[in-house]
Design a protein around this nucleic acid. Structure first.
Lengths: 241, 241
DNA sequence: TATTCTTACGTTGTACACATCTTGTATGTC
DNA sequence: GACATACAAGATGTGTACAACGTAAGAATA
């Protein structure tokens, strides 16, 4: 399946009627979109840890040569999601429970910062959007596919990231999120953690955050997230031993 | 001046008598060394904000083709130190006082974490090394070249980074350091901040940290750093307005 | 049969030619 | 003389051929 750049996300064809004033930025955007796409596949375990990614195959799929693909894979390597080895291949990285613990300890601390450094008081449209997310979450619990649920988790994460205006903090948190989420999911499946239970707990977290949001208490939002991130890893550790 | 890869840093020729068991890692190391070199030049204002870096010139200097250089420049772009624009060039980025403030707010918080998350109790050899650093700092105050002083500042920063074993925290702090230091230095020079006074304050900070280190109080070390980072930016803001 | 060497294949890394884009300059025109 | 236009020069982005490298399969041998 070739990767159609024009219709899905690229601003090459603007979905508004505007004459494409800034359609020239496609070069950077295309790389960004490929990066996001491959990163999501890794996070959703479509590319599980250990998978060998072929530059040639990706190039063919995205309809480019190897060069832009290598640019994206290099970025993913700097983010710790893949590792290229000469003569072998580009392999999706794995992490043992100890490395994972390190990242989690930092994530927990950084998450708390969202409520404290450059907080953004959410507007009405944000609250509405979050309400819809909570409602969708209740539905998704029932279907309960890990793939779909993780997709939903990503969406919620990115929404809550908007609660801080501190761009470096956002970038760092995003980085750590993608480093941990896939390993958590993989380990949780291996350790036969009760995923349905995890989904229910996540939905409870959303409801608690919803309450805190309505009070415009961003520090409370951050503390709730912090607590749940910490607890979800603790449950994984307990089950894993 | 051609860039001699073999003698300065590369493990191509091992300075110990060991047969080069792991000399095969040169591929990755060479890119890492070029990255470190260019990043240092940017940080020391050898490449001031606005400077146009030529891929061809760098390729010639480092004795490679443009391809590995582009790999390094892409990494620097992801770190926010340069920005490549098609048809124009690769330009060293600048930042206004507001962007700088954002990064500083995060740096301040993260610095405090060094003393709290995965702290490393320093051994005797570390204390000795730090003592030598403090002594060298007293000497450097006199010569007082911004270039040399920033080099020293970098060395101290990397030494203190060893006080946490949390690798993601290290990477993040290093990233933020290189984003802020060069802009601070440039702005400080422009605002005619008293650099000698800054150097003396920094040396006081080192002595305070030395004291805290001898007490093995890493949280105190972190708090001292946090306070000085915050204060040095405050002084810059005051002078700048 | 076990073991070692060789060899072929696929992968990433590098170099280079070319495409595409931006900008400054020179030229023609009003 | 002012302004618009065309063009040339130089930069980054892309595609491709080749080199360097590791792995696994297979053949040769003890």
């Amino acid at each position: 399946m070739p990767y159609d750049a024009g219709t899905t996300w690229g601003p090459t064809v603007n979905d508004l009627g505007m004459p494409d004033m800034n359609a020239r930025l496609t070069v950077r955007d295309r790389n960004g979109a490929m990066h996001q796409e491959i990163r999501q596949r890794i996070c959703l375990l479509d590319y599980a840890p250990g998978t060998r990614l072929s530059e040639a195959a990706l190039a063919q799929e995205f309809g480019t040569s190897r060069t832009p693909i290598r640019r994206v894979l290099a970025q993913l390597e700097d983010e710790g999601l893949v590792q290229s080895r000469h003569g072998v291949g580009t392999i999706v990285t794995d992490a043992d429970i100890n490395e994972l613990a390190q990242v989690y300890r930092l994530r927990v601390e950084l998450t708390e910062l969202v409520g404290r450094v450059d907080p953004v008081i959410p507007g009405v449209e944000f609250l509405d959007r979050f309400d819809r997310l909570v409602a969708r979450g209740a539905e998704i619990i029932k279907s309960a596919s890990p793939h779909e649920f993780t997709r939903f988790d990503m969406e919620v994460f990115h929404a809550l990231l908007e609660l801080t205006a501190n761009e470096p903090l956002r970038q760092t948190l995003e980085r750590l999120y993608f480093q941990t989420k896939r390993i958590w999911l993989k380990t949780a499946i291996e350790a036969q953690l009760d995923l349905e239970e995890e989904f229910r707990i996540f939905h409870h977290e959303l409801e608690a955050i919803q309450l805190a949001l309505r009070s415009c208490d961003l520090q409370a939002v951050a503390h709730i997230q912090r607590a749940h991130i910490s607890m979800s890893f603790k449950r994984l550790q307990l089950q894993n031993t």
